[in-house]
Every structure is written in C-alpha cells, then in structure tokens.
C-alpha cells in the first residue's frame, strides 16, 4: 500500500483510497492513532492541504475521528470497517467483471474462471503461487 499517485484522477481521491485500504487491512488498527497531516503529506509527497482534504473525507465517512489530545484515530466500530471492506470487495469484483466482459466472457464463464482459481487449478499466475492454493 505505497502511494501511487500518478494517475489522472484527483489526488485526494487516490489518497482516500490508499488510507481506506490501510484501515481495512489493519495497517492502522481500530482505535489506533494515525500519523499527523504533515507526516502523511511528507510520506506521500503531496501538499498538506490535499492530505487534509482527504482526511476530512475519511472523517465524514466516520472512519477516523479527531481527538483533542491524541490527534486523529481510527474508528473502534469494527462493523463499520467490515462493511467498508465488503464495499471495496464489491467494487473490485465489478472491475473484474467489466474487464472479463471486455475479453468477451459472459457471467457464467467468468464464474467458472473464479471457481477454477479458487479450486487451485490455476493457482500459478504470472509465476507466483497464489495464497491459499495447494
């Protein structure tokens, strides 16, 4: 989850996505303090105002909150984090379906690919053994 901000979409949107991933994957565990705006801005190589805007977005989504003494902390509401995780999974699945659709596969065929991969028939992709494979 390094910062990859080269795409042609707004920078703050990409920052929000990276920080969201850090929260759902436990890089920033529930209730933990996240680094300051300046630290994060320096790490990502972005303007502090842009980082501030991204953090305000996360705050609006109630994924983080500002504490008077400890700075910004991740929500302790694990069900909120779980539902975010599920919505990211849905987005990723949609993207996968769109790409496979562009290759000309229908939904049944796509489901077969997923099943094959899950069953371990295709557990070597690009020279890497997928986790959970045999």
């Amino acid at each position: 989850m390094t910062w990859n901000l080269k795409e042609d979409r707004p920078i703050y949107v990409q920052i929000v996505e990276t920080l969201r991933m850090r929260i759902v994957s436990g890089v920033y565990p529930p209730g933990s303090r996240i680094p300051s705006v300046r630290e994060l801005a320096a790490e990502a190589g972005v303007n502090p105002n842009t980082m501030q805007r991204a953090l305000a977005d996360l705050e609006r989504m109630e994924l983080i909150s500002t504490q008077r003494t400890t700075g910004k902390t991740v929500t302790e509401d694990e069900s909120r984090i779980l539902s975010l995780k599920e919505s990211i999974a849905e987005e990723e699945t949609k993207i996968y379906f769109v790409k496979m659709g562009e290759l000309g596969f229908d939904h049944r065929q796509i489901a077969d690919f997923v099943k094959k991969a899950a069953d371990g028939e295709n557990n070597e992709i690009g020279g890497y053994t997928l986790m959970g494979g045999e």
Binding site: K6, E7, D8, R9, P10, I11, Y12, V13, T50
Partner: peptide, 15 residues
C-alpha cells in the same frame, strides 16, 4: 486547483 483540473479534464496537469 490541481484536483479541479484532474476532475474536469480527466488528465494530470502535465498531460
């Protein structure tokens, strides 16, 4: 604003 350009033009400022 940089993000405004990216949003409206769908391009980086460089592009």
């Amino acid at each position: 604003q940089v993000d405004e350009i990216r949003e409206k033009a769908g391009k980086t400022v460089d592009q």
